[in-house]
Design a protein around this nucleic acid. Structure first.
Lengths: 132, 132
DNA sequence: TATTCATGTTTACAGACGTAGTCGATTACG
DNA sequence: CGTAATCGACTACGTCTGTAAACATGAATA
């Protein structure tokens, strides 16, 4: 009887810090096996393959990555785009810290000398484009 | 013998989401009693006074708020400035998501129509100032 | 075929977090 | 003085995270 199992607009489960590292690997290239993901991240983070496998399955549960069987193993690929992730995360920050307005964030970055002259130039260019 | 107990540059403990709500109250006005903090936040978040008290003590442990005894109760005040908190948090985001460069964050916000014309005007003004 | 290897699945476990109840001391009130 | 209200301290407990070990299973190999 297929009773409505799909609850669509399930706001995407948060992706944790460690999980993000795995996502980054997949966003860079995919599909990958757990092994291959490990090759990308185990070194830098000092993780074991097991850790990566755990993170991958959690990400599958969270619907953030998809699996496709390939012989005895799985190939993993991201199911959400990096841009989307970046979007919700930065929005979260802007909401939490700046009452939802982006200008104060910008002001803060500027003040905190977090903006290099290059950044500033780049942003100016963007602004010009926005106004056209 | 005073064996180096002070470990100074103890990178400031993360402040959680719920804890931040308490901090916001204290940043707005301080010192406050637990009671008063609750008056600010319990309503909106549907918390009990106990919850606030727990959060306050966790914040004290984290060295994020200071206590000053006042008769039988305590007065709480922030020990870290909001600007500092905002600073580390936004830096975290920029690092995690944009490889530490602020321009891409800006670009993203712009693209995601998260920038109102007002924002844009404001940012232009800021830029002008930065360049002077 | 018996063993080893690779791989996904299950279980583990400590620490952080959200949310709050309980306890013990102090104070205020009747 | 006895009792209720207040307040901080301690305890609780389920979930999420970081990090992995143990297990099951099928494939490769000796």
């Amino acid at each position: 009887m297929e009773r409505c199992v799909a609850e669509k607009p399930d706001q995407p489960e948060r992706i944790s810090d460690a999980e993000q590292a795995v996502m980054e690997a997949l966003w860079q290239r995919s599909p990958l096996t757990a092994q291959e993901v490990c090759e990308q991240v185990c070194g830098p983070r000092g993780w074991s393959l097991n850790t990566v496998k755990t993170l991958l399955s959690r990400l599958v549960t969270k619907q953030a990555v998809a699996t496709e069987p390939d012989g005895k193993r799985f190939l993993y690929s991201p199911k959400i785009a990096r841009a989307q992730y970046v979007g919700t995360e930065s929005r979260r920050l802007v909401d939490r810290l700046f009452g939802g307005r982006a200008a104060p964030l910008f002001a803060h970055l500027a003040q905190a000398e977090a903006l290099t002259p290059d950044d500033i130039a780049e942003i100016e260019a963007l602004l010009k484009e926005l106004k056209s």
